[in-house]
């Protein structure tokens, strides 16, 4: 099944018949089996699926972190497949942002320095107006001089979000961004992500296995056994949960 673009918006990221095979012979594992998907610009998409469904692999392939065995991946008008290291570096620098489950802030830098790190790596200056907007949106203005160790988990993840946003990438990939947070901090972060999509037109692709988190997205794509099996537009926690239950059943029987 192919997940298609619902509206007439241009895709920010696109996978076309992507296969990913690890190992060979008896140890061979097929993580993705011909996945095709488009992620529209200015929308918040969640990728869901049970453990081992290939959702993280799909995200890694979309972001150019992992190579695909077959098929093509595009970000905006750039074909990711086949890019060499410097091409991939340029892609990450200019078009892609990341938010990790483990926050991954540099412990030696202050919050502000962490937020500005991608820009300083690229040798660019931050747009001051946009920088102020981002800081105010994440509500961290008082904490900019703190080190990560002096911040709570939720605050750290908001710093990580600000870091991803400040460079205005084509698409932000978030890998279980609330996995390490309590439900209140998680809700804050998810609200913040949704707002950045609604108010600033940011594109976000989020991998999660939490139906509540997925409900913040505009659209949910379901993966099972390396294939896209279902899709929800304007999901709620209940509809997501229902779909998940349906997905789990046949997979368990199959096992």
């Amino acid at each position: 099944m192919t997940a298609t673009v619902g509206r007439q918006a241009q895709a920010a990221a696109r996978a076309n018949d992507v296969w990913k095979v690890y190992g060979s012979g008896e140890a061979q594992v097929i993580a993705l089996r011909g996945v095709s998907a488009e992620f529209e610009r200015g929308r918040f998409t969640a990728i869901m699926g049970p453990s081992g469904s290939g959702k993280s692999t799909l995200m890694h392939c979309l972001a150019g972190l992992d190579s695909v065995t077959r098929g093509t991946v595009m970000i905006g008008d750039t074909t990711v497949t086949g890019l060499n290291d410097s091409g991939l570096t340029k892609l990450r620098r200019d078009k892609v942002g990341f938010i990790f489950q483990q926050f991954n802030l540099l412990p030696t830098l202050t919050a502000q320095e962490n937020i500005l790190l991608p820009l300083s790596i690229a040798g660019r200056k931050a747009d001051p107006a946009w920088y102020d907007t981002v800081i105010d949106t994440v509500g961290l203005r008082e904490r900019l001089g703190h080190r990560p160790a002096q911040l709570s988990g939720g605050q750290q993840q908001r710093v990580a979000c600000a870091r991803a946003l400040v460079a205005r990438p084509e698409v932000i990939f978030a890998d279980e961004p609330t996995g390490n947070l309590d439900s209140r901090s998680g809700a804050e972060v998810l609200n913040f992500l949704r707002n950045s999509v609604r108010e600033h037109g940011q594109t976000i692709v989020m991998v999660t296995h939490d139906p509540t988190a997925a409900a913040y997205a505009d659209r949910v794509v379901f993966l099972a056994d390396g294939q896209i099996v279902s899709e929800l537009i304007e999901p709620t926690a209940d509809t997501v949960l229902d779909t998940m239950k349906k997905l789990d059943a046949p997979v368990e029987v199959g096992n």
Partner: peptide
């Protein structure tokens, strides 16, 4: 790896 992920070149 984080540096690389957020755009640092080799």
């Amino acid at each position: 790896a984080l540096m690389r992920a957020i755009g640092a070149s080799g």
